[in-house]
Nucleic acid binder design. Structure first.
Lengths: 225, 225
DNA sequence: AGGCGCTTGTGAACCCGTGCACAAATCGCG
DNA sequence: CGCGATTTGTGCACGGGTTCACAAGCGCCT
């Protein structure tokens, strides 16, 4: 499930706080989900909690990390060291959660050789040999949209089977290759939609619950403080 | 719906290519979704295409932009100009899609005054007055996780009603405030899970379809090239 | 040892999103 | 003017995710 990483993060926080066991209720609150959902998720990966007590934090961390394949430190290739790629290369959150940025690539010869965070930018034509040498299976695309499809093809040709795409475009990849897309502007547009919905709501004096039939599902939280 | 921005992006591409009308099939392919789903989405916002012809590109763009509330250029505040915040401040994709980064904030006095992309970093204590002056309703949190909740509280106090959170933690906000969370490391962990699933799959000689019952829903594409 | 309270695991109902398939409608052409 | 090709809009069934509710199990206290 896509919620496992969230549980893992909450568990690490709890372990740091010195907690030894957690109830599903407590962990669910820390991860921002329903407790029944969490129990079902955890049961699906065969993990055993003890009734009347809860889950063993350390054991559960191991279980989830194994399921997520984080027992080995995975090497990722980052393509495109522009504005965003530069930041991603230096983002500490990757290293602290089991990932190692193994290589940086760009199509611009002017950037090749530039050192970023202890790593030299290489030309994209080196992708195949470097990916094989470092056994890279995950690629991150942080290029303009126009270049993204070519980069994706090159990554696939180099043996990459999972791609995280920050470029605002849909990628076409062969079967067996997983693509996740993160579009920063889309996130803001969704928030803009909520803003629009809220303002048109307050404009109407009557208490109709929704101005139209749209429901805007997604990552939503509205927890009372 | 959360797919509207994706349609909008595809439509802008089509408009740039000179197309005047699109069929639902064509637009669905460009956006990477099913055509029936797209038609249903479009019908839900009351937009009229003409049968036998398709949708008018320019008209549909206007319709979606209105629904998304993009007729007005929305001002957003960015808090935290570290590695990631710095990149977000310079990200051209925001400006090109209807958003204006109106102010930059940080808690570190050493960064205050620093010019980034034509804007000076201000101290977070100025948030309330600046937000009111610029009528900011959307805030972006790019701080470490430890500071995120305090920043969120400050944003809410300043009148912000939509928050985009890049910090790896769950935020607690009063009802009526929308939060979207983007966790870069989580995205990689989900890809890692797919990798683990794939490798354990190839390790087994028998052709069982799935090593366990997990299905990892989410942003997934597997389009044959 | 026995009972009680607490927590997990899960069966079942429910709800929503998804996709199929088809009727209605529009344009172009003969 | 009429017919066929094409495309939208939508009713309906299917599947999966979500939630409730409760039985089963475990520890602790007496």
């Amino acid at each position: 499930m896509a919620r496992l990483p969230e549980y893992l993060r909450a568990l690490h926080n709890l372990a740091e706080a010195g907690d030894d066991t957690v109830s599903s209720e407590g962990l669910a609150a820390a991860a921002g989900v329903n407790s029944a959902k969490l129990r079902k998720d955890l049961s699906h990966l065969g993990s055993y909690g003890t009734r009347g007590v809860g889950y063993d934090v350390a054991l559960l961390i191991d279980q989830i990390e194994f399921t997520l394949g984080l027992t080995q430190r995975r090497a990722v290739a980052l393509v495109g060291v522009g504005n965003l790629g530069h930041a991603l290369a230096g983002y500490a959150g990757f290293a602290s959660r089991g990932f190692r940025i193994a290589a940086l690539f760009d199509a611009d010869q002017a950037r090749v050789g530039e050192p970023i965070n202890g790593l030299n930018v290489r030309h994209i034509s080196d992708l195949a040999v470097v990916a094989a040498a470092e056994s890279i299976a995950i690629g991150v695309i942080a290029t303009p949209a126009a270049a993204a499809q070519d980069v994706a093809d090159a990554l696939v040709a180099a043996g990459v089977t999972s791609i995280l795409n920050f470029a605002p475009c849909v990628l076409s990849v062969p079967e067996g290759v997983d693509v996740r897309k993160v579009d920063l502007a889309v996130e803001l547009q969704i928030l803009s939609f909520h803003e629009h919905r809220k303002s048109s709501l307050t404009a109407l004096p009557g208490g109709l619950s929704s101005p139209n039939g749209l429901a805007a599902t997604g990552t939503e939280e509205a927890v009372g403080s």
